[in-house]
Design a protein around this nucleic acid. Structure first.
Length: 629
RNA sequence: GGUCCCGUCGUCCAGCGGUCAGGACGGCCGAUUGUCGAUCGGCAAACACGGGUUCGAUUCCCGUCGGGACCGCCA
């Protein structure tokens, strides 16, 4: 029988003791945060996940423990038995006065534990970086020693919140009639959408499973099965390049409902998100969103005003689409815009779905953007495929200066642009024109870049920092320029608006659908759709996509078959748990809210995954590795 | 596939063609009975790797490796 743990059980956590405990005998376990050795008295700050308690070793009270304390170093794992006492007034040698030894910075600062007996459970090597919230270590080191990084109270708090999020989600959804059900991770590979991780089948040489990129098809089949309401907190896998908010494996709150429309799904998700914010943060979102409803914006409006489908509404700098003005003014005296105007005039471009567009945004005079800084912006946009960045400063009389555009622009066009953008004297106009997707991408990124640079984004924890939005009614198809055809913008099972069904075969560009994203502060935190449950419309969609019956059957046969056996109207959504956790905790990267994340190159710095495997393993799988390019 | 940024003691940062490569924190040794990121004295500790330019490279250039941001891709 060991004295500690077997006989002496922990009585309190290191964050628990207060003045009310004075006089009690307690047993604490934890890690050595700091030690202060006065030769006579020795102090140790003992840390566990709950907090820090100062313990004191006195040679008069416990000579053996005092001797042991001399050896203790940072991160040693120790246990103490002792008496809680008031820190009280102490004589300070420094000042020669009696001073209060209370520490207001510590929750347990009124007391300390006078050690009677102690044990060293384990020694520790000096950690590669200091285990403190403010540690300035780079992320590479933190990931290599993630288990030490996670010892920092800041990190523990994030994962405590994540645990809370799971509990709240389970409670809210379960109490609304949802069943928590599982779906396979090893699934059949279906082309289209995200790239899958492939898993070779040992029992079927040459065949592969795919890791599920989402439970999509299975959750729909739960609806066909008549389960009506399903949810799952589940891992998804996508073999795509990583980003600040993207990991190859990530967690979704996956939801599917029967006999509902888009509004019903929104209402359920709003209920869940409001509960998450209320209980994790103590933030009542009804103050901003009375009635418990998030605002909605159409996809088209979002693209026009912000250049993407996940606008950050915390600041302005909105885009102005000048395409119509350019057409009206036949290029406004600017040769490069004339070319675009001509395209519309001779019919190579359509006004309802232009391939080339012109956009502007206004950098306010208050930004005091220098010429050198404006030049830097040009470098920034060139990295995203822009040829350049036309700009003009607006003078007192509305004229454009510091710009090559100023020489040839017609006064009428200039006035029209100033009016449309609301540009005032001193402001700087920034233009982008060309292929629609490039212009949107460049201008969307430029807006974000400027928003950060000009510090227009409220800081975490300040008012106005939660801006939710439903982005709705996107087109069902998007045009693939290199293959010259219409492709599904998402998956092929999204329900088109009823009034658009007639255009499926005549004018696919006009078809909008019941697809929606939940956006928070410029991040897509959820996405879903109302599904197609009508086999006839489904067939039309496939035809519009140029997918033959045989092809459809080969790819999605089991789902199509299922839909013929009485599928209820249904729809669903998936919330990105990691992104929600990231925003909720004010983290700057998804890696900060994933306990064991991958680097941007998809590696695990701690375990060194991925790694090579033995030739015998490959032989067993009948897999041959071809190296080199 | 592409564009850009970064790599100096254990950690963070300084250096900007010739330095005993400097500081802070941390570490080690010693002193110290009221500190709390204790204090005081002493000590040890680094230019990612490979090539090039140069009389001379931590410094400039190229490549490799590693990390990061973004575009493409991806909800």
């Amino acid at each position: 029988m060991a004295r500690f743990i077997d006989e002496l059980k922990r009585t309190h956590s290191c964050g628990a003791l207060r003045a009310a405990h004075i006089g009690e005998e307690v047993v604490l376990f934890g890690w050595v945060q700091y030690y202060r050795d006065f030769g006579g008295l020795r102090f140790i700050d003992l840390r566990d996940r709950d907090g820090i308690t100062q313990v004191v070793f006195s040679p008069e009270v416990a000579p053996e423990a005092h001797e042991l304390a001399n050896q203790m170093r940072t991160e040693w794992v120790v246990g103490v038995r002792g008496t809680v006492r008031d820190r009280g007034m102490q004589h300070s040698k420094k000042s020669g006065q009696m001073v209060s030894a209370h520490n207001a910075n510590l929750a347990t600062g009124e007391i300390e534990v006078l050690v009677r007996e102690c044990v060293v459970f384990n020694r520790a090597e000096t950690p590669p970086f200091e285990i403190e919230d403010e540690t300035e270590t780079n992320e590479e080191k933190r990931l290599q020693y993630r288990y030490l990084d996670l010892r920092r109270p800041k990190m523990f708090k994030i994962f405590k919140t994540r645990s809370q999020m799971s509990q709240i989600t389970r409670r809210v959804l379960s109490s609304n009639g949802f069943l928590e059900l599982e779906t396979p991770v090893l699934v059949k590979y279906t082309p289209g959408g995200a790239r899958n991780f492939l898993v070779p089948s040992r029992l079927h040489h040459g065949k592969f499973y795919a890791l599920a990129e989402s439970p999509q098809l299975f959750k729909q089949l739960y609806m066909v099965a008549g389960f009506e309401r399903y949810f799952q907190i589940t891992r998804c896998f996508r073999d795509e390049d990583l980003r600040i908010d993207r990991q190859p494996e990530f967690t979704q709150i996956d939801v599917e409902m029967s006999f509902v429309n888009q509004d019903d799904i929104f209402a359920m998700m709003e209920k869940l998100v409001f509960a998450l914010w209320k209980e994790c943060l103590g933030t009542d979102l009804t103050e901003r969103y009375p009635g418990g409803v998030f605002p909605r914006m159409t996809f088209a409006e979002s693209m026009r005003r912000f250049g993407n489908d996940k606008p950050d509404l915390r600041f302005g700098l909105e885009h102005t689409d000048l395409t119509e003005l350019v057409i009206e003014h036949d290029g406004g005296g600017l040769p490069m815009l004339k070319d675009i105007a001509d395209g519309f005039a001779n019919g190579t471009d359509r006004r309802d779905h232009p391939r080339r567009i012109v956009k502007a945004l206004v950098i306010p005079a208050t930004a005091q953007l220098s010429r050198a800084e404006a030049d830097k912006l040009e470098d920034y946009v060139k990295g995203m495929g822009a040829k350049g960045l036309a700009r003009a400063k607006v003078a007192e009389d509305g004229a454009w200066t510091q710009s090559p555009l100023a020489r040839t622009v017609t006064p009428a066009f200039r006035e029209a642009v100033n009016a449309a953008t609301g540009a005032k004297p001193g402001d700087m106009l920034i233009f982008q024109f060309g292929g629609a997707s490039m212009v949107h991408t460049v201008m969307a990124n430029l807006r974000l870049h400027l928003g950060r640079k000009l510090k227009l984004i409220p800081e975490f924890g300040t008012a106005g920092d939660w801006r939710f939005l439903w982005v709705v009614d996107p087109p069902l198809f998007e045009y693939d320029e290199k293959d010259d055809r219409w492709v599904a913008a998402h998956h092929a099972f999204t329900r088109p608006h009823d009034e658009c069904v007639e255009f499926l075969e005549t004018d696919p560009a006009k078809v909008l659908c019941y697809r929606y994203d939940l956006v928070l502060n410029g991040f897509e935190v959820g996405g879903g759709s109302v599904r197609l449950h009508d086999p006839e419309v489904q067939a039309k969609v496939f035809r519009a996509l140029g997918i033959s019956d045989d092809e459809a059957k080969a790819k999605f046969g089991f789902l199509l078959e299922a839909l013929r056996f009485g599928a209820p109207p249904h729809g669903g959504i998936a919330l990105g748990m990691d992104r929600l956790a990231m925003l909720l905790s004010g983290a700057e990267s998804i890696r900060d809210v994933v306990a064991w994340p991958k680097t941007q190159k998809g590696t695990d710095l701690m375990t060194d995954a991925p790694n090579f495997v033995a030739p015998e393993q490959l032989a067993d799988l009948r897999v041959r590795v071809v190296t080199g390019d």
